[in-house]
Nucleic acid binder design. Structure first.
Length: 592
RNA sequence: GGUUCGGUAGCUCAGUUGGAUAGAGCAACAGCCUUCUAAGCUGUGGGUCGUGGGUUCGAAUCCCGCCCGAAUCACCA
């Protein structure tokens, strides 16, 4: 039972004994006592005044006195205004500490028997991954681990958008260049090479539009009628009709991209249980639409296109099939969702997709509901805000993006410079050093991105991201390295760690309280699908340790029992930090 | 215009089911390395929590109006 739950029981009992009334558990409000007051848990007295018919102070006094008399866990109490502050005994916290330290899986929850599918990443194959994708990937993978820690069976899936006009654009520009460039003959990473030709296409397009405008064509017309765009559209038709040459080129260029993506995913520490390709799924859903049409859930317009009227829900009409009978994005998503449900019978399906698609998912759920699927509400759109740069938004067409690979390289460089400056690596081999730089750089990047509430748009300031001081990933890594260093020294001197029953100081109790709420944090973060809560938790814990570190000398104490107990405490801290970091995907070094 | 989401210190962000004097980091300033790692610690300054009402013993938090910003409302994906 948590301290808060315990206090709720006690207060309930006290009110029953003192005033002969039963109050619902929900009316008993507790919170951690604020630092400036003496106590651990605070109960709010205001809701009970009608029952006690006394002042807030007097009510608090009476309840406090009663609890003190009948509870061995409570050491003292005080009342300030309507707040009853209760203080647990050191013995109580020692027991809590013992429980945490003997529970190997502290923070992990029992198997829930629920299956959760998480779709994330979902890249286009016409360009390399950029900062926005990094946020998506980091969110998706940390949310997956968070759900696993909550005992769910998690299936991570990726839906690769490998077909459509965008990839034709890259293909066309590549073909036109007649250079025959490949990753092998240029040494360029596959996704970057294809991305290069996507930018090239847009350059050609821009040029053609300019020329058309010079010859007197309106801008909007020029944008629609540029020859190169027509060519790309023709290419898409060729692809859809299975034209051998086009399909061959498409396969080749996509394979370059996949090789490139694999490298980036690996660096980011990301994997999937199943990968779907849109070229396989884009026709799915037509069946659903025609059934909906039969049952008059949808309707057909004169030109033959199929729509759903969502005006009742405050939305517009939504297109489901084009006049020529081909399917659109949402048709595909309807089919995919249904297929996945048949296959996995998930209890929840999380889509990690940017907030520019809020409307899309609103519609998707509504359509599934209209079609009569009872599981429509298990679909959850984890919508995250855009990543912006100090100069404004990123635009991949104009090449003003922060490339994922470049960014990681830059951060590894900074990690190297910073580490060498601080000069702590004398005893490390070249190989170990490289590993450390990599760990620090990715730790910094991951923490920087994950610590922000997913809903909010975030600003990525390169200057700030490479700062390894303060509320950062490297701070947590540093804290861990410090702890491991102490434990190494203790082990060299054969000092045992154990819980001896020595008195705990205030800071230690504070730390134990924080360790104690770790399982609740995991639960809360899992319910809200917000790894940011775990990031902040880890930071607070690390900060508390650093303060503790400066207050006392763990190994220089004369009392052997005290040393043993303190070693045990920091060992537990290191374990929890490691577990929290694992959820965030951050590796912690043994030394740095 | 409709829908959705944001607005907290100069900047980047936290803020538990509504609770006490709203917190971190960065930046600025002042201290702390003969001691287990100074990527650290301590202190100072910095706030009409967008705004106006309402509910309540009590509001950054809940409700309503307004202001500002973002995304979206395609026979693109």
């Amino acid at each position: 039972m948590s301290p808060e739950q315990l206090i709720i029981e006690k207060v309930k009992g006290a009110i029953h004994a003192l005033y002969g009334a039963d109050v619902p558990q929900s009316s008993i409000q507790t919170q951690a006592t604020r630092r400036e007051f003496d106590g651990d848990i605070t109960a709010v007295m205001f809701p009970f005044l009608k029952i006690s018919r006394k002042s807030p102070e007097q009510t608090g006094e009476e309840i406090g006195a009663y609890i003190l008399e009948y509870s061995k866990e409570i050491e003292s109490y005080n009342v300030i205004k309507g707040f009853l502050n209760l203080k647990f005994s050191g013995q109580y916290w020692l027991k809590v500490f013992e429980k945490i330290s003997t529970t190997q899986t502290w923070g992990e929850h029992k198997q829930s028997g629920r299956t959760v599918m998480v779709e994330f990443s979902s890249p286009n194959t016409n360009k390399p991954l950029h900062l926005g994708h990094i946020r998506n990937n980091l969110l998706g993978s940390s949310v997956s681990r968070l759900l696993e820690a909550n005992g769910h069976r998690v299936i991570k899936v990726n839906l690769v958008n490998d077909r459509g006009i965008h990839i034709c654009k890259s293909m066309l520009a590549w073909k036109k260049s007649k250079l025959g460039e490949t990753p092998a003959n240029t040494g360029i990473k596959g996704d970057h090479l294809v991305g290069k030709y996507y930018v090239e296409f847009n350059n050609i397009l821009k040029q053609e539009i300019e020329e058309l405008k010079k010859s007197g064509v309106e801008e909007s017309e020029a944008e629609k009628n540029a020859p190169v765009l027509k060519e790309a559209q023709e290419m898409l038709v060729k692809w859809e009709s299975g034209d051998k040459e086009t399909v061959e080129l498409w396969r080749t260029m996509n394979s370059w991209v996949y090789d490139g993506f694999d490298i980036t995913y690996k660096r980011l520490g990301i994997s999937f249980d199943k990968t779907y390709y849109e070229s396989d799924t884009y026709l799915l859903g037509k069946q659903l639409v025609s059934e909906g049409l039969k049952r008059a859930v949808f309707f057909k317009k004169e030109d033959g296109s199929v729509w759903c009227d969502l005006s009742q829900e405050g939305l517009d009409e939504k297109l489901l099939l084009r006049a020529d009978g081909t399917s659109v994005y949402i048709t595909q998503d309807l089919g995919t969702a249904q297929q996945r449900f048949e296959e996995f019978r998930f209890d929840k399906h999380v889509y990690v997709v940017g907030n520019e698609q809020n409307y899309h998912f609103q519609v998707l759920k509504l359509l599934l509901k209209r079609l009569g699927y009872s599981w429509y509400d298990t679909i959850y759109h984890l919508s995250y805000g855009m990543v912006e740069l100090p100069e404004g938004k990123m635009k991949s067409r104009e090449g003003t993006v922060v490339d994922a690979d470049d960014l990681m390289d830059a951060m590894i460089n900074t990690a190297k410079e910073t580490s060498l400056e601080l000069g702590k690596l004398e005893n490390m081999s070249q190989n170990e050093q490289e590993q450390l730089f990599n760990m620090l750089a990715l730790g910094a990047l991951k923490y920087f991105i994950i610590k922000v509430d997913p809903k909010k748009k975030m600003l990525f300031d390169p200057k700030e991201s490479i700062d390894f001081n303060g509320n950062t990933g490297p701070f947590i890594q540093y804290t861990h390295a410090r702890i491991r260093s102490i434990l190494r020294k203790a082990s060299e001197q054969s000092i045992e760690k154990s819980i001896t029953g020595a008195n705990l100081n205030e800071k230690e109790i504070e730390i134990i309280k924080r360790l104690n709420i770790f399982p609740d944090k995991i639960k809360e973060a899992g319910d809200e699908l917000s790894p940011a809560l775990i990031a902040n938790y880890a930071y607070e814990l690390a900060k508390e340790f650093n303060q503790y570190y400066h207050e006392i000398s763990i190994l220089r104490e004369s009392d052997k029992e005290l040393i043993a107990q303190r070693l045990m405490l920091i060992d537990v801290i290191s374990g929890i930090l490691t577990r929290a970091a694992a959820i965030l995907g951050i590796e912690l070094p043994e030394r740095m």
